[in-house]
Design a binder for these strands. Structure first.
Lengths: 234, 234
DNA sequence: CAGTGGTCTAGACCACAAC
DNA sequence: TTGTGGTCTAGACCACTGG
């Protein structure tokens, strides 16, 4: 091994370890030197090496076990991370003008499927909203939202005329547990009408449920305009 | 404030801080005490508080600036993280049997769109593969892959009959820069035929490009069987 | 049982940005 | 200028787990 120039911070240590993996010096499955050995080689404290290794582990490149040591993963864990901003920000970030419109608003007894998903009691009431978010006047996202009115009674008195329920919820519920899923579906009647799709055309849908303190808060289905792509790089 | 029971590790500190945010003690936009103050309150070292705050920051809940201090984000950054395992693992994890089949294999001059995407020179050759991955005999994923043969000449001599190009690439190219995107598209001829879709039906597509040391390696479009959903929780 | 990673501590210096 | 987070260090104890 070449004489190791002294590295400075955990970032450099991380980069050097990554380099050794990419050039094949530490092939998949191989055992890395212990933290102490690496710390001595790089002339840094063990905590510095630890942070570098921990971040590479979290990134899915390494596999660490006490006593067994640190190994390069045979198949690096492929994981993708997406930022999911509020629609308004997503649109305004592109320079387009944002417009919001409430299409339908109704207050009713929660349907069975919603009660099951959010864990609501029988007979519980819910607010149902349909909203359209547009970019430069063109339909961008159709939002079909249900809010648990037992958990959030304030939702009953909101008119949601000026801003979308998403923004209102974010400002109202401090923090929540979330489940998101993506899928491709055939456009239904509402989507066809408001997003200007042919009926049955492919729609990119994002479905999200959120809980707060173990109470189901809201369920939303967001359908995007044609050609929408969710992209990330890492 | 109630007398703070002494907390033990960074996880407990993190949980306590999260609790104070969720119950509204530290509302969105508010300024948290400094690391030193928190360390004293919880009777831990500043490094412990630092790690707790750093992780909450990475999770998108806090906003930290030198000199300005740590604030609760007005709108918590919503970010979703998805595990994207190799198809074989994804299928076998459900208990289903995995089957791989090579449908087409051709070696040709890279088309313009591919050259543009991967940064290949004019006239560069590429290997084009179409593969089907099945679960319990049912079509699960159709893979349409291009490999840059200039960057990976070994791809020319691989037959890809026994295992998918994805697994071969993972074992061959140590590490790469990746761009992933998700979209909903209308099923084309290949998809209709091999995934047993009606032509034009909605298909969930994942597109991925990878680079290694700034050389474009591969481009792949993966189309999933009907009903496929990508789900995550956080 | 012994080696490895996981975490904590106390103290320190520095960089940045608000004032 | 000065306060805050960002990071490093040296040392320590502990928990898990492989041999």
């Amino acid at each position: 091994m070449l004489p190791a120039a002294d590295l400075q911070g955990f970032r450099e240590v991380k980069a050097e370890i990554l380099r050794r993996i990419t050039v094949g010096l530490w092939p998949p499955g191989s055992l890395l030197p212990g933290e102490l050995a690496l710390a001595q080689e790089f002339s840094v404290a063990r905590a510095t090496v630890n942070r570098a290794l921990r971040e590479l582990d979290e990134a899915g490149l390494l596999e660490r076990k006490r006593k067994a040591g640190t190994r390069v993963r045979l198949a690096p864990l492929r994981q993708a991370r997406f930022e999911m901003p509020v629609v308004r920000d997503e649109i305004e970030k592109t320079g387009a003008s944002y417009r919001y419109a409430l299409i339908r608003r109704e207050s009713l007894v929660a349907p069975d499927w919603l009660r099951a998903r959010l864990g609501m009691v029988a007979g519980a009431r819910a607010v149902h909203l349909i909203c359209l978010h547009s970019a430069d006047g063109l339909p961008y996202q159709l939002e079909d939202r249900w809010i648990n009115a037992e958990a959030l009674p304030q939702a009953m008195t909101q008119d949601f005329l000026d801003r979308g329920p998403n923004e209102w919820l974010i400002a109202t519920v401090p923090y929540s547990e979330v489940e998101v899923s993506f899928s491709a579906e055939a456009a239904g009647g509402d989507e066809a009408e408001h997003l200007d799709f042919p009926l049955g055309a492919p729609v990119f849908r994002v479905e999200r449920m959120t809980w707060w303190q173990s109470a189901g808060i809201t369920h939303v289905t967001m359908s995007y305009r044609q050609g929408y792509r969710l992209t990330t790089r890492y």
